[in-house]
Design a protein around this nucleic acid. Sequence first.
DNA 1: GTCCAGGCATGCA
DNA 2: TGCATGCATGGA
Length: 272
Amino acid sequence: MKVKVEKNNIIVSEVSCLDLDLTLDCGQAFRWERQEDGSYKGVAGGHFLHIAKDGDSLIFYDTDKAVFYSFWVNYFDLNKDYDEICNRLKQDSLLASTIDEYYGIRILNQDSWEALCSFVISQQNNIKRIKLIISRLCKAYGDEVADGWYSFPSAEKLSTLGVEDFEALGTGYRAKYLERLSKSVANGEIDLDYIKSLPLAEAKKELLKIYGVGEKVANCALLFGMQFYSCFPLDVWMKRVMAYYPDGLPRCFDGIEGIAQQYLFHWARQNL
DNA sequence: GTCCAGGCATGCA
DNA sequence: TGCATGCATGGA
């Protein structure tokens, strides 16, 4: 990775495997909005960002250098060698063709609270509507960090809401899950940083105790919000994909099943 | 109108 | 342990 500063922008080059459409709009994060010119605007970690791609370079518009290094490098996982990962995954023939076609999907390092909440909302729901509900949630209860752009609300803030407040956002039957989850995280009964520090099996066990969190939501929270790359979330799309792996997952997925999963998820949504 | 979406809790066997 | 069912909402 090479970084240079031009005016208020940060230009990053020599980062492989980062396509904005495939990474920011592939169902792992729900807060990025594509602009007409192909750039993206969104909020993560309380920071607003406008990001674009110019050839092989990434442009972080109006971004503070300190925030870039302290937050965005980790969020986009810019120091991870995705070419090595892709090469390993391509030992599997389906992944080989999928990566050739959709090269550039990365797993973002999202905040655990935002990821867990988002995937509780995601259950039995479609991506378009998940984004709609989350944007309503942020606008109503987040902080305005840029003109018209809101942070994801904290558990403390959401712990003051009642079930009817969550229902008013269109969360449907998930409202009761969100209400209880917010209160439990706010009062410390659930400690996401602690869960993140546990070995995978124990971390998953803790997440599965949460009302409204099952196998799928737990795996998504672990993969997208807690950096457990070996998690392999099985939703309705991935269950269709599994017909292509009757003997189980290939060895080349070991330890990076979650990254393989994200490519297969995208492939399934385009082709199945 | 019906079907479906990055599922889960509940009840019952 | 495994399976059937109900659940809110909005777009196709």
